[in-house]
Design a protein around this nucleic acid. Sequence first.
DNA 1: TTGCCTAATGTAAGCGCTTACACTTGACTA
DNA 2: TAGTCAAGTGTAAGCGCTTACATTAGGCAA
Lengths: 339, 339
Amino acid sequence: MNKRSSAPTLQDVARMAKVSTATVSRCFNTPDKVIETTRDRVLEIVEELGYTPHFGGRTLASNRSNTVGAIIPTIDNAIFARGIQAFQETLAQNNVTLLIASSGYDPEREFQQIRSLISQGADGLLLIGHARPIKTYDFLQRRQIPYVVTWNYREDSNSFNVGFDNRKAGSKITNEILKFGHKRIAVITGHTEFNDRALDRLNGVRDAMKSSGISELNLAIISTTYSLKSGADAFEDFMTRKPRPTVIMCGNDVLATGAITRANEMGIKVPYDVSVTGFDDIDLAEVVQPKLTTVHVPHRRMGKSSAKLLLDILNGKQDCQSLELEIEIVLRQSLGNAF
Amino acid sequence: MNKRSSAPTLQDVARMAKVSTATVSRCFNTPDKVIETTRDRVLEIVEELGYTPHFGGRTLASNRSNTVGAIIPTIDNAIFARGIQAFQETLAQNNVTLLIASSGYDPEREFQQIRSLISQGADGLLLIGHARPIKTYDFLQRRQIPYVVTWNYREDSNSFNVGFDNRKAGSKITNEILKFGHKRIAVITGHTEFNDRALDRLNGVRDAMKSSGISELNLAIISTTYSLKSGADAFEDFMTRKPRPTVIMCGNDVLATGAITRANEMGIKVPYDVSVTGFDDIDLAEVVQPKLTTVHVPHRRMGKSSAKLLLDILNGKQDCQSLELEIEIVLRQSLGNAF
DNA sequence: TTGCCTAATGTAAGCGCTTACACTTGACTA
DNA sequence: TAGTCAAGTGTAAGCGCTTACATTAGGCAA
């Protein structure tokens, strides 16, 4: 990597403005401690030189970076995009920069990324979901790293936590489905290892079935990766089984869209031949035909609230609180009566 | 922001391993200059302490950060997600971290973000498109910042550049459309100010029409923001005009999907009543009914190649070359004969 | 006038790291 | 045997910045 040789330094500015480096520094950090005439002169030079403070020097000296990190499973998925965008916007309003890294749903990589972001100077972190190895939590604990867990809310969590209860959400949509008279339920879920959102949703389905007195024997599950094609393939798999399920619940809208697309190709009519539901309520849900009945997740609010909480923690605010958000079921056309 | 007080330092490691700080440092940076027994001892302590090198110190001392920044118009859009994901993966393979910032299509904010990323220590940058104010280029020039422009390829660019020629692409799909006998063409484009991709695509349409001897009077244009709803509204607007266009070309697949969705709602049959085309070939294109005829953009290849080029530049490799990628037209169902 | 206080600014230490240079040791060559 | 060299390690300077503390100057009360 090459040198950033030509970058002007605080020294350069100080020399040209005929003040000490301390004064220049104060112009940035505590402007009201510098008399206006001096400040103007300094800022003029700053402009002229195109001076930008050197981040490394700054963090070293002040032991803070105004940077937080977020580690998300993948960038390439609409599921996270909206929430992260809101998270970032809120941080930006507070002059905090966001570093984004992705783990590819791999806890080991997540751990590395956490270390990497911390050594990059991140003051705090945003993490998705609760499920991660103890050693990761140990590290966070030992290094006293402020962090917020989002995308899932758990009553009993030891972490600061903003999100919705995926288990309740799973139950809620299942109850809705049961109202339509469905008995044979199939679930296409994302892999549940180290993905507590997926796992909790699935357990929510089980909860609801149990409390309605429906045997687990009526529940069929395929777990797969999050892609249109996986959703489509899993759908086809279910449709070749006998007896067919009457409803196919999908772990997110991407899987559900894949399923419906395949249904259309196979000439299977949704919801007349089989119902399909999604989860998330991303744009896709209103694009696919028939439109998806799904769980509406308040992504933007989640991102914004997470940012606020993390900022509060970092600013040492007292009694910071975890926050549970509510979800709603959005009834569209892909869920119909059991036949 | 709070202190990271409890982080162990190089010193701590050195003391516990009974070596100098230089040796510990070498274990990380030039491991083959340290004899194995020493290295093992050091790494053991590193593990035990959960030591992570302090980024600030590191950048200060070495004047490099192994970090590059990317400024994209928005995170919340599938258009960029795939390419950026590939970009990031390639960097990660080379132990380079990616910082992502978003500009919201605003050149002023882009400039700020560039400054911010640079002061964060980014060694180089990825920028989307060529269109930005001179002062931004001046800054990049003056500070000698290595950068790669992507998502558009221009023969005459002064910048390192990986992408496809949006103008040619615009022509190419227009020619395809003309083969289907279309004469009255409507375009729904993103705003073209400081968006050279959109502008070039539009100019490509004009080029193709001109060389086929079709008057500009047969071209209607609406420029709008990139969202499903904007696409839908613009579509409806066009459909109420007389005479109606026979084909609606959309600046990207999101707009096109919005258009088709609205068509379905209005009972307008695509492609029998009107044809619709997109641009990008994201997942959406195969989900919407009818499936989209669109321009396939090699997003992943673009991201990967951009990363490689940027890394080469940063490593001071000689004769780095800009790279033009080819696009292809994907014929699906949304384009039919003019009626 | 003297003494005290405050506001503005300067001085200089040191944040954690890399690296040029110096030193030590042991092996090899002439 | 002395001389040369390379490998492994240590010493210490200094990267750009913040900030505790020191200094200066001017205003005001006694």
